[in-house]
Computed example of a mutant assay.
Amino acid sequence: MPPSARPAADSSRSRSATAGSPWSVACGTAIRSAREAGRTAPDTDLDLAVELVYGPLHYRRQYRLGPLTHDHADHLVDAAVRALDPSATSGGSNA
């Protein structure tokens, strides 16, 4: 679908943060807090950000790759927030 045909995302309110599983609600709340604290871009799409975290959780559960723990979910949220950080540079070396 071309970008012009897509519905506009409401960046002030997220479906994932207000409905769904307890995991997705908690994830949406954490990412919204990070956005409000300036740790992600102000226009971060919360639904997409939740999917970045929820996908690996579902994959882990579906294929029984390990337990679904709060610690693991926290690590995934932290990784997503770092990936959405507007101050992060790309293309740099890890040296």
Rank of each mutant, 00 (worst) to 15 (best):
E51Y: 08
L76H: 07
L57C: 08
D74E: 14
S14R: 04
R35H: 06
A41K: 12
A26P: 02
P3A: 14
T40H: 03
P56W: 03
H70I: 09
R39A: 11
A49F: 06
L57I: 15
L48Q: 12
N94E: 09
S4W: 11
S4D: 10
E51M: 13
G66P: 03
P42L: 01
A8F: 05
S16W: 07
A80S: 09
G55A: 15
S90G: 07
P86Y: 04
E51K: 14
R60K: 11
D10F: 01
S16H: 08
A79D: 10
A9G: 00
W23M: 08
S90W: 11
P3Y: 08
Y59F: 13
S16R: 14
V77Y: 05
R6P: 00
D47H: 05
G38H: 04
S11Y: 14
D74H: 10
D78H: 10
I31E: 03
H75W: 10
A80P: 02
S12Y: 04
P2W: 11
T29A: 15
A79I: 06
R61E: 13
L84S: 07
R35N: 02
A88Y: 03
A9T: 14
G20W: 02
S14F: 00
S90V: 12
P86Q: 06
D10V: 06
P2M: 10
A26K: 13
L52W: 10
R61P: 02
H70A: 15
D43N: 13
R82C: 06
V77E: 04
R82E: 12
R64D: 11
S90E: 11
P2C: 04
L68Q: 11
D45A: 08
G55V: 12
R35E: 01
L76E: 03
S24E: 14
P67L: 14
S4N: 07
A5Y: 11
R64N: 11
D47Q: 04
A83R: 12
T44D: 02
L84E: 00
D71A: 15
L84H: 01
G91A: 07
H70E: 15
G92I: 12
V81D: 02
T18R: 15
L84Y: 03
N94G: 10
I31N: 05
A17W: 03
H70C: 01
D85L: 01
L52F: 13
P7H: 07
L48R: 13
S14L: 02
